[in-house]
Design a protein around this nucleic acid. Structure first.
Length: 416
DNA sequence: TCTGGGGTCCTAGGACCC
DNA sequence: TCTGGGGTCCTAGGACCC
């Protein structure tokens, strides 16, 4: 969006301008670590002229959709995996054809979206992920790497991959297998599956098998309905007042209810949680969560706000410096399923309420996010998080959401 | 005196991912 | 001073059933 940034070191920050969550290669070369708290690298950024941006998820979501739609054209089996990753399936393809195809897809995405992608190809998802990481790092690969199909070639390829770099192997699993001498992806592929099963459970066993080329993770074309909705934020500053906490919880509950309606779902319970700053061990710590049943299940912002408020009142304690609060909606089911309820299962759905929420959604779609919202969400909201370096670049303005198409939306979600 | 066995469902907590 | 947010899956243990 801004060609003057080509070749310039750049970092992008998490919500609340908290941590570094993305770095250009120039910023990586200057030694900015992934996940660093921004305050700990601010001086380095200033000293080297590193450009710093707040996150801008409406732009990322827009470009994600563009890239995904190009990718989907290229494969019969297509699984959007995250905002910037997808799995594509090509059964029975030769090694040479795979490389040609990968390069073709990469060129097509670049041409039509301006986004450079890296592509890893192999017999299983775990092998693809390893190849993709190498394609990203090794410029001479041209952005596309195929894991050798033959045994010797594959083992040679896996020798150079540390165990911790394997998809699905976190710090815990890496430490456990390391104590048994398993240091590389090749070591894990060679290990006895029954032994790995005992050592690392089915999760570890599947990873080991995938390294051998045995697919344990299929491409999931339809992820199905989601199982929970969470909305939470850190505060821009310490919060001590119950009123501020109430406003934040009401705001998150309102957004959660909106997400329910976007997906055509209702929730049967809401969990409220909040806590102090866990990084500040010099301060008194308090964390709490509390559930409130929603009967009948609902997507109505006012009902969910009221329930969340009751839960908060039960667990709130004065005298702490709070840093974060949120809301979790659980027990999700399709909204159209609650209309036929058995006797004793609660009051029938009030259709006038549904019309009201529809009107609210229509107004906010037209006039901008949060133009119409419950008064309990507050007016001043001095607890809100920081976003001080947001780029101007926006192809779909956050304030006005795009008109909804009738096409079924792929199930990709990301935080705002 | 003696007290089964097999199964499902739910939940909390942990690990992991991006 | 300052440290993100939103998910899924697996497992163990308890409740409960027949």
């Amino acid at each position: 969006m801004d060609p003057t940034l080509i070749g310039v070191p750049i970092v992008v920050l998490s919500n609340n301008d908290g941590c570094v969550v993305a770095r250009s290669s120039e910023a990586k070369a200057l030694g900015i670590p992934m996940g660093a708290p921004f305050f700990s690298v601010r001086r380095v950024c200033e000293a080297h002229g590193i450009k710093v941006f707040s996150s801008n998820f409406s732009v990322y979501g827009d470009f994600s959709e563009r890239v995904m739609s190009v990718l989907a054209e290229h494969a019969r089996d297509f699984e959007p995996y995250s905002i910037d990753e997808a799995f594509l399936g090509f059964p029975d393809m030769s090694e040479a054809d795979a490389l040609t195809l990968g390069q073709k897809i990469r060129a097509d995405v670049l041409k039509r979206t301006g986004i450079a992608v890296s592509i890893g190809m192999g017999a299983t998802k775990v092998l693809c992920k390893i190849a993709n990481e190498r394609a990203k790092k090794e410029i001479q690969s041209g952005g596309c790497i195929v894991v050798p199909y033959d045994y010797d070639g594959r083992m040679n390829f896996l020798k150079g991959i540390g165990a911790k770099e394997i998809w699905g192997v976190g710090s815990g699993l890496a430490a456990r297998i390391r104590s048994h001498g398993i240091l590389s992806a090749a070591d894990l592929a060679e290990a006895d599956p029954a032994f790995i099963r005992r050592l690392a459970g089915v999760v570890g066993e599947r990873i080991a098998l995938e390294l051998r080329g045995v697919a344990c993770h299929e491409i999931i074309e339809d992820a199905g309905a989601r199982k929970s909705i969470m909305v939470s934020r850190s505060f821009g500053r310490m919060v001590t007042d119950l009123r501020d906490l109430e406003e934040a919880i009401a705001t998150h509950a309102t957004r959660g209810a909106e997400k329910l309606r976007e997906d055509g779902l209702v929730a049967s319970s809401v969990v409220v949680f909040f806590g102090t700053n866990k990084h500040r061990q010099d301060q008194e710590q308090y964390r709490a969560d509390e559930i409130e049943i929603l009967d009948p299940p609902t997507d109505d912002a006012r009902t969910i706000c009221a329930a969340a408020g009751r839960a908060l009142a039960r667990i709130h304690r004065d005298g702490y410096w709070y840093k974060r609060a949120g809301v979790l909606l659980q027990g999700l089911s399709p909204a159209d399923s609650v209309q036929e309820m058995l006797p004793g299962m609660g009051a029938p759905v009030d259709l006038s309420k549904r019309r009201l929420m529809k009107a609210v959604d229509a107004l906010n779609a037209k006039l901008g996010r949060e133009v119409v919202r419950p008064g309990s969400t507050g007016l001043v909201r001095n607890w809100q998080g920081k976003s001080e370096q947001k780029s101007e670049a926006s192809t779909n303005k956050e304030e006005v959401t795009k008109p909804k198409s009738d096409a079924k939306k792929p199930r990709i979600r990301f935080h705002e």
